[in-house]
Simulated scan of single mutants.
Amino acid sequence: MKAIRYLLFPFAIIYDFITTLRNLFYDKGIFKSTEFDLPVIAVGNLSTGGTGKSPQIEYLIRLLKDDYKVAVLSRGYKRRTKGFIVLNDRHNAEDVGDEPLQFFSKFKEDVTVAVDADRTNGIQQLISTVNPEVILLDDAFQHRKVKAGYYILLTKFNELYCDDFILPTGNLRESRRGSKRANSIIVTKCPEHLSEAEMTTIRKKLKVGDNQKVYFSTIGYNKQLKGSENITLEELQDKDLVLVTGIANPDPLLAYLKKNELRFTHINYPDHHNFTDSDISKIEKTLNSIVSEKKLILTTEKDYMRLQDKISNLVYISIETRFLAEEKLFTSDIVDFIKG
């Protein structure tokens, strides 16, 4: 696979030229970028998938929902509908995408969640229909038709954008130069006990600007699982599990389950997978093949959004962003931006 990627290096150079030219045209005002009067916060990355955008959006929702009227706008990746949609209880993952449905399911009493591939139109529709005080844009770092007031750039601890290369040789959607648009850079999925010396080394590697701040976060797993039954992580230890994942990188979850001495058979699918009848049959067949009477299907929260209406005996484990240092500095920076 790596050899093929190196062979595609000439295409990476062409892609780099195209994306750099596009960004230059936006920077110079040749391409139009719309700015709005209300605070707009964009969360995104330079690389493809798996940096922790969803838990970061949820972190911001928890931070802001009690003091501001918040709306979340996503494109609704892999949904089968088009245009602007405000989520309600009748929608499923096929209608609006798994991540927006996840936001809605957890925070429907607190925020408005909408989808629109055209973020400019989506923001305009939100302003005219619900009049939010703050808008959070999910996965919008490259969506330059909207000029957000504050950009949060995520990069994984073990795959920093400064160590990567542009597609298709590497995983970057655009050159690492794009990081200069970020107000805050969050290194995600860090080890829980990352030292200050290691943080300092990473800050130097990222070569951030004087007005940019770098933060470090890790993924926390919720020990209370939900789904067809409410069960704790400890109660799973006497069960045989079928783990079903359709996420970009399931390795951290696998490591966490092994660390907690859980027994499981793993069935892995691509990120944002649309589960077919054949997939469901395979999952159920795998579960039925387990001799033990104490058995259960375990999945991620995002995959649960796609599986909940298709399969029973299913629970999910949720995750959340946890800052390792300077959390108060990050939250005060966000609130100060909103207050203007």
Score class of each variant (00 low, 15 high):
K189G: 00
E198Y: 00
T188F: 03
T200D: 15
R203M: 14
V187I: 15
K189F: 03
K180G: 01
C190I: 13
R173E: 08
A197R: 12
R181H: 03
S184A: 10
E174Y: 07
L194T: 03
T169Q: 09
I186N: 01
G178V: 02
R177M: 05
I185F: 04
E174R: 05
K180R: 11
V208H: 13
E198T: 14
A182C: 06
R203T: 14
N171G: 10
R203D: 08
S179R: 11
S184Y: 00
E174K: 06
E192G: 12
N171F: 05
K205P: 10
K207E: 15
I185E: 04
E198K: 15
K189E: 08
T169C: 06
E198C: 04
T169R: 15
N171Q: 12
S184L: 00
K180H: 10
A197G: 00
I202T: 12
R181G: 00
L206Y: 12
E192D: 14
S195M: 11
T188C: 07
G170R: 03
E174A: 07
G209M: 10
N183I: 01
L206E: 13
R181A: 02
E174I: 07
K207N: 15
R173V: 05
I186M: 06
S179F: 04
S184E: 08
P191V: 05
S175Y: 05
T200A: 15
A197F: 06
K207L: 11
R176M: 04
K189A: 02
R177Q: 07
H193G: 02
N183P: 05
I202A: 08
K204M: 09
V187P: 03
L206W: 09
L172A: 03
E196M: 06
L194H: 08
T200V: 09
L206C: 12
I202E: 05
N171T: 14
M199C: 14
A197H: 10
G178Y: 02
S195V: 09
L206P: 11
G209P: 06
L206I: 13
T201D: 12
N183W: 03
K180T: 08
T201I: 12
V208Q: 13
S184N: 10
N183A: 01
T201K: 13
C190W: 04
G209L: 13
I185Q: 01
R173K: 14
T201W: 00
S175D: 08
R181S: 01
C190N: 07
E198M: 10
T200F: 09
H193L: 09
R173C: 07
L194R: 06
